[in-house]
Simulated assay, not measured.
Amino acid sequence: MTHSVAVPIIAATAPVYAHPGDAGADLVAAEAVRLEPGQRALIATGVRIALPDGYAAFVVPRSGLAARHGITVVNAPGTVDAGYRGEIKVTLLNTDSREAYDVAVGDRIAQLIVMPVVQARFEAVDVLPDSVRGEGGFGSTGYTQGKSE
């Protein structure tokens, strides 16, 4: 069962879900940009939205662009807060060390995921409660060649 929320939008090309049930709606470029190897650029989408309170949108990379061309979103996920009314722009990075990548107007460059969020109420304490994981951080669950645990 898919839930939906009304999101007012101003856009020449509104984000579109490629398939029923998809989490991310495709954002398209509103300008043409050439990304040289290792270069990043802030790309306009022409999309402005008004998220309801209690929601945020997250700009994430498109897996096909990453896999085929090494194109990713630098600050993924980029957070769009409910109070923001400006244009959503996407900072793309060409991670390919040899090939430039041309972004044309109308190219799908990222996905937008709209999600409900809660605001934390941070409460100062002297000691945190114990947990099974404890203070184990990066790599604390181990690593085996060929599979991660």
Rank of each mutant, 00 (worst) to 15 (best):
T2S: 13
H3G: 08
A6I: 00
V7G: 03
A14Q: 07
A14S: 07
P15A: 06
Y17R: 02
H19Y: 04
D22C: 03
D22Q: 02
D22S: 02
A23S: 15
A23Q: 15
A23E: 12
E31N: 15
A32K: 02
L35H: 01
E36T: 09
R40S: 15
R40T: 11
R40Q: 14
R40Y: 14
L42M: 15
L42D: 14
A44H: 15
G46V: 01
V47N: 00
P52F: 01
D53R: 06
D53S: 08
D53G: 06
G54L: 02
G54A: 02
V60R: 14
V60C: 13
P61V: 11
P61K: 15
L65A: 10
A66L: 14
H69N: 10
T72I: 13
N75Q: 09
D81F: 00
G83L: 00
R85M: 01
G86S: 04
V90R: 05
L92F: 03
A100L: 09
A100F: 11
A100P: 15
D102E: 15
D102G: 05
A104Y: 10
G106A: 13
D107S: 11
I113L: 14
M115F: 07
Q119H: 01
A120V: 06
R121S: 04
L128R: 04
P129F: 10
D130C: 05
S131M: 04
V132T: 08
F138S: 05
T141L: 09
